[in-house]
Structures are given as structure tokens and as C-alpha cells.
Simulated assay, not measured.
Amino acid sequence: MNLPAGGLPMRVRVKICGITRPEDARAAAEAGADALGLVFYARSPRAVTAEQAAALCAGLPPFVTSVGLFVDPAAEEVRRVLEGVPLDLLQFHGDEPADFCRQFGRPYLKALAMRPDVDIAARVADYPDAAGILLDAWHPAVPGGSGETFDWDRIPRELAKPVVLAGGLHPGNVAEAIERTRPWAVDVSSGVEADKGIKDPALIRAFIRGVNSVHSQSGD
């Protein structure tokens, strides 16, 4: 469900992913982020433990969504995290089928990598109960967080689910990305970092200004 081509009748939401420090969570929330992503994937430089994530969630203000990112986890791993971390939304970044994603009693996003031969409309249909579909650049070595973009023109104009656009976004290109793809939300990690896992408050603010500038130009 991309937004209509004729305008932006709603505000594009913003998720800042790969939060590892309380000060970064505060900076993102104060800048106007709608959601913060916490990575539960040990191979990521942005990975957090359940204990770290619980502390980060405890410091969030109202109406900021906490999102837990997993990559092909065991079901017990997800359940252990949920026992101690009050996540609002789950995000699955591997090859998890829908019946796996739906079993945890939380709404979920399914990330799909834009592989050269992928049929996105068909893949979206495989997840009928997903809250949304996150489209990310494909990289053979890493499941997201590569800092690379993909060809936005490959996104089908009409999809059955809200689209979260990810992959190589940063303050300098997010406005163009929104204008061209009309997503429900945008997701950024490395594009607002001073170093891996360390967010830059100035870049976060610049990124959100870039998102909001599209609405200002469209007269919303």
C-alpha cells in the first residue's frame, strides 16, 4: 500500500533502527521518530542483549514504538526476549515463513530483500497478516544494514501492505526516496550514524527534516 501518486495525504513515519544507547534513543524520540529498532542478531555490530533492550524501552516516552529485529531466530529465542522486553512490534529479516512470524502474539513486519529476480507482489502475498512489508537492499553477505540503496523504480505501484522503505537512506536522499516511492514509513540505521551502533543526533534531526520537507513542499 504505497501512498497515492497525486500527493501525500498523511505523514510518512520514521523508524530509527540499530539503537544501542539510551542517549541515542532519547535523541531519536526528541527529534520526532515514531519507532526505534532494537537488533537481536548477534552478528550485527548494532546487536543488543535483552537486558540492554529492556533498559532502552524503559526510557521511551509515550507513543514511540519499540521494534525488535530478528534474523532467522529460534522461536524460543524470540520468546525469551519477549519475557523481558516490552516490544510493540516484531521485525523478521530472514527467511521466516508467515506461520513462524505470527505465533508470538505481536504484530510483525516482514523484511524482503530486493534480490535481482524477486517478485515482490508474490512475496508480499505470502504474508497476509503482516502489519507491513519492509523493502531493503539485497546484499549477499548481510541481511540489512548494508548502507546500500536499491532501484526504487522496482517497487510495484500497488501493494497489498503498507511499505516501509529501507536501504541506504540518509538525510541527503530521503526526500527524493519518499517522492519517488510514496512509502508508509522510512527506516534508517547507518545513514544517521557517527559509527556503527552510535547515532549522531544532528544526522537524526536532518533526516527527519528531510522527511518532513516533502510534506511542506506538497502543501500538507
Rank of each mutant, 00 (worst) to 15 (best):
P107W: 15
L3N: 06
V118D: 01
V71W: 03
E83R: 15
R102Y: 07
A111I: 05
K15P: 01
K199D: 00
D187P: 04
D187K: 06
Q103A: 06
D34T: 00
H170Y: 05
G94M: 05
L87N: 00
A177Y: 01
R26K: 12
G105M: 14
A25S: 04
T20H: 02
P45Y: 08
A137G: 07
Y41L: 14
L36S: 06
V211L: 08
A28W: 08
A33W: 02
D153L: 11
Y108C: 00
F100A: 04
L159T: 12
G37Q: 12
A113P: 02
C57D: 03
V85P: 04
K110S: 09
G37N: 11
I120K: 09
L112I: 15
A206P: 09
A55S: 11
R43P: 09
L169H: 01
P143A: 04
A29V: 11
D119R: 13
D72F: 04
G59P: 01
V64R: 08
E76S: 12
N173T: 00
E77L: 08
A55V: 12
W152L: 10
W138M: 00
D119Q: 10
V163C: 06
I16A: 05
A27H: 14
Y41M: 13
D95C: 11
P62T: 11
T49W: 09
G59S: 06
P45Q: 12
L112G: 10
A202C: 09
Y108G: 01
W184L: 13
R79L: 09
A122W: 14
E148P: 00
L89Y: 07
A28N: 08
V85A: 01
A160Y: 07
D117H: 14
Q103M: 04
V188Y: 01
P143C: 05
I204T: 06
G172R: 06
F150G: 08
T65L: 15
I208S: 03
R46M: 10
L38G: 02
W184K: 12
H215N: 12
A54S: 12
V214P: 05
E30S: 14
E76A: 13
A54M: 11
V39E: 05
I178G: 09
L8Q: 15
F100Q: 03
L82Y: 02
L165M: 14
T20F: 05
V118H: 02
A50R: 10
Q103I: 02
G6N: 02
E158F: 15
G37V: 09
P201K: 09
G219V: 07
V71H: 02
R182L: 04
A194N: 05
R157G: 07
K15L: 03
L159M: 15
V14H: 04
A125D: 14
A185L: 00
D136E: 11
D99I: 15
G172K: 10
D136N: 03
V81L: 01
P116R: 09
V48T: 04
I133H: 13
L38I: 01
G105C: 05
R102I: 12
D129H: 09
